[in-house]
Amino acid sequence: MSDDPSTATVHAPATGPDQPLSDPFEVNRRYLGSVAYRLLGSFTDAEDVLQEAWLRWRSVDRSAVADPRAFLTTVVTRLCYDQLGSARARREAYFGEWLPEPAVSYQDAPASPAEVAELGESVSMALLAVMEQLTPAERAAFVLHDVFAVGFDEIAASLDRTPDAARQLASRARRRVKAGSRRSTADPAEHRQAVEAFAAATARGDIESLLAVLDPDVVWHSDGGGIVTAGARPVFGADKVSRLVRGLAAKFLTPGWSFGFALVNGEPGVIWYPQPGLVGGVIAFTVTDGRITEAYTVVNPEKLAHLNVAAS
């Protein structure tokens, strides 16, 4: 399995005689995959974008490309920008809540400084969900500048805007993200402690212990896509969420099922398996002051398929 959770299944075509390892597309493939995933929230769509970007790269006059990385970033951004418009229409017709496809890593070791620079900071499920409220242009400007530190001149070229307009897009997106976010205030150890307490209480069916780890105003989000039974709307409040979780545990934590811990979009989360090697669901959490304020549960098998492929 790839050590990088955000590019586990975003593949360019295999390197061959006409695509050596020194080819700029191959050199930047992980970075481009990270950009596409953070712009789209979908590994499936990100992989489609990389395939199309690779085809365009093959057909371009490379002698006229002064900066291949900037050129490829522009190509990927424009392809994602086009997809975001149609994706919004699809997601409005989606059954229940639409949540991003989770990026899962079983590696606890932090990324090296070079990897952070190449791949951008981890983008939590909560932040990806909030970014669904941005316009395609706002999302592109925010991700490129705030996550990948791309300059506004380059962003402007990608979006066919002026640098000042690109700066305004990023600023507006930043304000909207801040207004819509319940960002985690927990350090990794505190976050993990809350998740482990949640898992232990869930396994026991212990309502009182669940209430102790859930914020009174906790929000539970679910995405089954109409394929797997899941709530069509968020569930609000610790009492309702704790009873929901106990009911789910009674239904799913049966012999043959197992669950464990993993990093979900760079933060401690829970993953469970209906049978060995088959991912049945992933939960990402936001933790504030030691309590869980939001949970994002993805059980739509189409959004988990990349995890089974990556683990095989």
Score class of each variant (00 low, 15 high):
V270F: 01
S86D: 15
L21P: 03
G41M: 06
E115K: 10
S258D: 09
W272M: 02
S184K: 07
P5M: 07
S222M: 09
S184A: 13
A53L: 00
L21R: 14
V177S: 01
K240D: 15
T15Q: 14
M125N: 05
G260Q: 08
R91M: 13
E294V: 03
D239G: 01
T297Q: 06
M1P: 04
A199Y: 01
D187N: 11
D67W: 09
T73H: 01
G281F: 08
K178D: 15
I283G: 01
T162M: 08
R172C: 00
G269L: 04
T9P: 02
R139I: 12
V49D: 00
E118L: 10
E208Y: 08
S112E: 15
F95G: 09
D164S: 15
Q107L: 14
R29V: 11
L55Q: 14
A262C: 10
D160Y: 07
S34D: 07
L210D: 03
S209H: 00
A212C: 02
S312E: 11
Y31P: 01
V270K: 05
E97A: 13
G120F: 08
A114T: 13
K178P: 04
A249W: 08
L159W: 05
A203D: 12
R233Q: 13
P20Q: 12
A156W: 02
L40H: 01
T135G: 14
L211I: 06
R69P: 10
A284E: 02
T15P: 05
D67G: 07
Q51E: 15
A194S: 04
V35I: 11
P113S: 04
A109F: 10
A305N: 09
R78A: 07
A129G: 05
L244I: 08
D108Q: 14
Y273N: 09
P24D: 09
T202W: 04
S59I: 06
D215H: 13
S122P: 08
V75D: 02
G225T: 03
G266N: 11
A165E: 13
A149G: 07
